[in-house]
Design a protein around this nucleic acid. Structure first.
Lengths: 189, 189
DNA sequence: CTTGAAATCCTAGCACTGCTAGATTATCTA
DNA sequence: TAGATAATCTAGCAGTGCTAGGATTTCAAG
């Protein structure tokens, strides 16, 4: 009896629709426009249906964030293809990271700025986050026994640049100079 | 007739109470607990009175953020007292910055994470923000004609560390190592 | 094909939010 | 003391996340 499979497939598809709608609305009108009623209207179901898929609104944001971590990991892996020297490798990585944050600001917001409960979420979060971090670590590497200090710090520098740029606290014109500067600090790592 | 002066003094005092209450509630229960009704109850006035002081809720958050920028500038200025070498100066600055973010997480959140409209706010924001930035620049300095690139990047590194640490994305135990690492990258600036 | 159970879904509503119009009260001037 | 002005409150709107309980559909057994 394939009826159970069909139902579960339809459920999965509907769940995909919910996160897709949430992401689309957030990216075009901000996360405050992502309301349960709006999402329900979008998928053409009543509001309570959403709560059979997600525990609450934050869980929807978290689901989108996990998507984001997976995509970021993929982007970083592609950017970290073995390059000639360390400088161009780091530059490629940093460019990819900052490009991602600029192309998907709402997604990045869901990943880092929004829900404080995300770090306690399902194991998916952990693995997706670790995957993205691993992509960073593979490129930044660790000199001697620094135990990932360099990777964490490099990540923090990129994240800080992304956030300050997004909020308009640093000059957008000097973007490339800052990128070159931060890469320069880390080539001799 | 000092009646007008008294009234304006009382108004200013009440305004101070509002931001103080907002800040206190935010720091103890998060910004989501800072509601207009709650603030009204706190200052023992009805809700509409708040709107004779601030245009909307965001303006209250912005007012708290400005306070934060002023305090951060003060903290950084104190930490940037002329030291022997550049390394200890940078280390003192970074320690002060990260200490501030840890001691006033909600305040820092209002300053950087929360309202996207803050950068367009009153001139007070600009001056307060510039003041804090100047305190950073005075210590980091700029080698040659980099036009503040080093300062912006250093700031971004600190901000990134603060955010990733707050959200539990990097190990809290390695805090000092990261601080030493980032300072190390910038001594030869 | 019909029937009863089970899964599915929707209507209606609660408590809360930011915000505001209009009535009410207090305050000061003449 | 009377009138005008300023200050304040009451009551309510539209919207939010979320949920209980009833209605509907779906499916398996007779």
């Amino acid at each position: 009896m394939g009826v159970a499979e069909r139902k579960s497939r339809e459920r999965a598809e509907r769940e995909r629709c919910i996160t897709a709608a949430a992401r689309a609305i957030a990216e075009s009108q901000g996360w405050s426009a992502v309301t349960i009623r709006r999402l329900a209207e979008e998928i053409e179901y009543s509001q309570p249906v959403l709560y059979s898929h997600f525990e609450n609104r934050d869980a929807i944001v978290a689901a989108v964030a996990i998507e984001g971590f997976q995509e970021l990991a993929s982007v970083l892996r592609k950017a970290a293809r073995p390059k000639a020297d360390r400088r161009t490798a780091l530059r490629s990585l940093a460019t990819a990271y900052l490009g991602f944050t600029r192309q998907h600001p709402a997604l990045y917001e869901a990943m880092f700025t929004m829900p404080t409960s995300l770090r306690f979420a399902a194991a998916d979060t952990e693995t997706a986050l670790r995957s993205a971090f691993a992509a960073l670590a593979a490129c930044v590497g660790q000199s001697g026994n620094d135990d990932g200090i360099a990777v964490e710090t490099f990540w923090a520098a990129l994240h800080g640049l992304a956030e300050l740029e997004r909020s308009g606290r640093i000059r957008p014109g000097a973007r490339n100079e800052r990128l070159a500067f931060v890469v320069d600090r880390f080539v001799t790592g």
